[in-house]
Amino acid sequence: MDWIALWLSLKLSFWTTICLYLLGIPLAYWLSFGKKRKWKILVDSIVSLPLVLPPTVLGFYLLILFGNSGIGTVYSKLFGKSLVFSFEGLLIASIIYSLPFMVQNLAGAFSLVDSKLIEASLCCGESQWNTFFKVIFPLSLQGFLRGTVLSFTHTLGEFGIVLMVGGDIPGKTRTISIALYDQVEGLNYQGANTTALVLLLFSFFVLFLVYSTSNSQWKRKNLFI
């Protein structure tokens, strides 16, 4: 078991989830309460692209963007190091890659909040901020939970983009899924077995917890029996 790789993956997933909160909450808020329908369709399609795009397409564009011509140059001038083969580069890639998992879950939960409650809060003179924190947020906890967990675990299982942008450098960009690939490449099937099993159990455990908090679909079924 490659603990350094596991640790790196957890760190990457953690920071990705934090950044996705900062980016995803305003975006989801605008998608569910905003007025401009045409723009919303456009933004929604762009946000959801990573769900259907092959990771290699995203990886390729990010490589070009991070390279000598795009934001990579700006970044290396500012911080003195390159974005490719670095943790920061991986973080940006993961944020883009996991964005739909956060935004779709949040937007879905926001739009399920009863608009009468929001209007009541606004009519009582509460500000939009307060309405968000006191009404919308508590009523969409389920969406937050799903968004958080799915972004976290999706980043943990990310492979193609990491391989293209990160380049398998131990301790810096060798995440747990790459370490597994490396173990298979090195014909170390025993090690690969352990790593795969740990990932499988972790993912199952997390999904089990999430779905056990949201078993509404089973309740509905019981109605008809």
Binding site: W7, L10, F14, L141, L145, T148, V149, V206, L209, V210
Partner: peptide, 11 residues
Amino acid sequence: FTSLFSFFLIP
């Protein structure tokens, strides 16, 4: 909820 969010406190 606490067990779920505790994952994110480890790192």
